[in-house]
Write a protein that binds this DNA or RNA. Sequence first.
DNA 1: CGCTCCGTTGAAGAGAATCAATGAGCGTGG
DNA 2: CCACGCTCATTGATTCTCTTCAACGGAGCG
Lengths: 239, 239
Amino acid sequence: MHENGVSANAAGCELCLVRRRAICHALSAEELTALAARGRRRSIARGQTLLWEGDDALVVATVLEGMLKLSASTGDGREQIVGIVYPSDFIGRPFGQRASHSVTALTDARLCLFTRPEFDAFARDHPELEHDLLERALHELDRARGLMLLLGRMTAEERIATLLLEMAQRFAGKGSEDGTDRFELPIDRRQMADILGLTVETVSRQLGRLRGIGLIDLPSRRGIVINDRGALAAIAAAA
Amino acid sequence: MHENGVSANAAGCELCLVRRRAICHALSAEELTALAARGRRRSIARGQTLLWEGDDALVVATVLEGMLKLSASTGDGREQIVGIVYPSDFIGRPFGQRASHSVTALTDARLCLFTRPEFDAFARDHPELEHDLLERALHELDRARGLMLLLGRMTAEERIATLLLEMAQRFAGKGSEDGTDRFELPIDRRQMADILGLTVETVSRQLGRLRGIGLIDLPSRRGIVINDRGALAAIAAAA
DNA sequence: CGCTCCGTTGAAGAGAATCAATGAGCGTGG
DNA sequence: CCACGCTCATTGATTCTCTTCAACGGAGCG
């Protein structure tokens, strides 16, 4: 357990990779400077947990690079991933004492970190920022509820198809017109299972099945080739 | 299909049942008048749907009386309830074109209704209102994610125990100290199943099982008596 | 009084979990 | 450079939970 790269933050925001997509885009240059003065850049290693479910929600952050998972778990260790966050996404729980879920790095990641009390105070003084947070929260709520349908009512095959299509949409280079997509999964089978509410074995078997009927190829451990996006979408079939 | 009781709204807000708990509590008397001028009281009968998943999100509302469900469904009709709303809760999707889920009355209900464009515009001019919406959205997000754990990782028995405890917390009169609670379920078995991602038969069987081992009684169709809250909590067991 | 809706219960079956073994890929260290 | 050990993915056999299909009885309501 190292203390990881924590560095002071000047006005490097203008060069920031996510300047235009993160919450910061709601702020003027002047306001941005004020916010930046409260922020810290921090690196976090793959596998490290930033916030623990149930603990005090001490910090919030914008993701600069990397991917993190939000997860909840039962008393006996069963885990459910309740969200994945990407660069420019916001993490943490403003205006609340406790973290309702854990936040763990899926890849090495860099964050722009704020202490929650400081961030809360700043947000309350900046309506445009709160509006942006609101839009993000509403969007996440829509996504979470979509996943509830998947977890509550879809078969293993449908869940897999849905996940592949979503991953393709995010990671494949706009796919060719013939319905083909090729990309690298950013997560392993265990994490796929934890997102979909399945076991690794079931994930593996269903992927094998889809490969068997020619809808996808699995050229490598993380590699996915979608041969027939239409057929996959037909399986995902959720209205 | 009747056109239901739609009536103009004066400044009856002061008498409003949910004045102090709904979004309105964030507004001054003056602002409240301005908002009220844009609102309409509307009754909606049990079973009626206010918003359809995928349709334009034309309205938002505060619930004055009654309960409504938020639901999503697959192409072939499987349904998942993704949320239940109670008096003083806010429904609808501000700042978004499409409703991501349907909103249907579980009981006869009364709403304080706004057209979405009007509400959006008003909200943008009133940061305190947006802050309240943000807090509500964040809270709903926490709840939705908790349900994702239930749907993805819990057994039927655990789901039932969790639901009973939550319902008891909301509807039972603070229960006696010996761990007993008595209340009427506001929903039928089908709706319980749609919340928990199960079938009605499984819900019925699990309730029967819990009754069999003495943890609960089922004095009537909707009636629930919790005999041993501790044991139920031990089953719910999610951290 | 009959009808429909709802809840319960039973029997059978399917889908996913569990238990278990094997093998591929990868980083480490000899 | 290769051997070792680890993690991760796959596959098989079996088990079990939950679903599906079906029938029945009671409560409420026209």
